[in-house]
Design a protein around this nucleic acid. Sequence first.
DNA 1: TAGTTATATAACAACTAAGTTATATAATCG
DNA 2: CGATTATATAACTTAGTTGTTATATAACTA
Lengths: 107, 107
Amino acid sequence: MANLDAAFSALADPTRRAILARLALGEATVMELVEPFELTQPAISRHLKVLEGAGLIVRRVEGTKRPCRLAPTAVAEIDQWLGMLRRALETNYDRLDGVLAAMKPEK
Amino acid sequence: MANLDAAFSALADPTRRAILARLALGEATVMELVEPFELTQPAISRHLKVLEGAGLIVRRVEGTKRPCRLAPTAVAEIDQWLGMLRRALETNYDRLDGVLAAMKPEK
DNA sequence: TAGTTATATAACAACTAAGTTATATAATCG
DNA sequence: CGATTATATAACTTAGTTGTTATATAACTA
């Protein structure tokens, strides 16, 4: 699962998560994404490249603009992987419940 | 949400995800976690420190051993954040559906 | 108590990441 | 066509990550 590396790594950066949060409101061009941050345009362009590489966003060409929007694929992959942890945590939690239930009578 | 940085960043490494997958099967000591990897014990110890710092695992002291197990907190935080993306993706998808539905009659 | 086992930490090398400025490309506007 | 706007890329700097080996600590074992 090499793509999970890219996806989680992309999400590890707060600027990139903020970009995604902005795109959750709808499509935006590069300059629209630059505006709210105290970063230069090349910095944002590179963040977008990382997000695109991770499958978290897609871009279309519209004249000289490149509007970005959220892509579903990476999120689905992440969800699937996290599902494994969720299930394990539930199981362990049940087990703990069992242990506690077994202990109570002893007390 | 500073902790999301640590959580996503911890999950970005395949060795650490493999460690979590192993812990999903149940508690394990450091040496038990070293065994399946072609890495040295200090390397694994540091990965564990990262996972602990991210709130993905907890460790107890048992004599000279430090058994590790999964912790639920970070996964819950991640799920919560991803929920935002999931909802946005659903909305955008619905919107796309709407667009496609609106286009069909025109064709 | 001396040796062994389990784990942590320090110091270092190699690599990657994130930001900057300067510059290139390419579409649009007048 | 020339100027402007939108975006990308290159070169560089600084900082962080991942691995290694060597060593420290601390609890068991004989």
